[in-house]
Design a protein around this nucleic acid. Sequence first.
DNA 1: TTATCATATAAGCAATTGCTTATATAACCG
DNA 2: CGGTTATATAAGCAATTGCTTATATGATAA
Lengths: 112, 112
Amino acid sequence: MEKDKIEETAMILKLLGDKTRLSMLQLMQIKDCCVCEFVEIFQLTQPAISQHVRRLKEAGLVNERRSGKWIIYSLNQESKFYLLLQDVLTHLPNQDEKLVWLEQQGLTIICE
Amino acid sequence: MEKDKIEETAMILKLLGDKTRLSMLQLMQIKDCCVCEFVEIFQLTQPAISQHVRRLKEAGLVNERRSGKWIIYSLNQESKFYLLLQDVLTHLPNQDEKLVWLEQQGLTIICE
DNA sequence: TTATCATATAAGCAATTGCTTATATAACCG
DNA sequence: CGGTTATATAAGCAATTGCTTATATGATAA
């Protein structure tokens, strides 16, 4: 039903309506990330980050896979909201410097 | 600063992350609307609707103009988030039937 | 096995949200 | 003028949000 589609879309937009989650999604366009990387980039506590990624995962926007003791998060290209997400992200300024900074700090390596 | 742009965008997306406001914006793409029309369409109380349009207005997404005792709301095409808004709205199902229904009920006329 | 590291989960809390009811404002109409 | 109509604003409230600290889980490494 169309009404449901609108409600679902509103739910997704509400999820995107948080600066941390929005940035996370944009970063995952460039590179799959783990929680510890997000912790460094956003300077938030680990539980705060975990709670954000959980919400993205529950909405089906991201996938998780385990790699040793790390859990790597990535955009779920099969999500029915993937196109919406991509469209929204084109309206954000580039954030590559965050990943460059992470690498310069030698923190990217934490998760490899 | 880029950080601000991301925060601003997140704020706008949070505003769009409500089914009522999201639908309102889509309807205003087709036709400028007044509060009493939204009240009929969404079956919400007048204060509830007024509070939603106020938030859209405060964010600069909509303009208001008075026409007699009615206040007509319309999309603000000068908003710096107008393009984002348009992009988002392309992902919604068509809602023209709501306006058709309004007309059939003779309720469009309330505000003319 | 035990210690450690990465992450998840739980509980608590202040701030925000989306509504409600009640009241105020402002334009129109007889 | 006084009454009605359209809308705004205020105050209150339950639900949700985004964090916090504390603790649990699960894989790795010694």
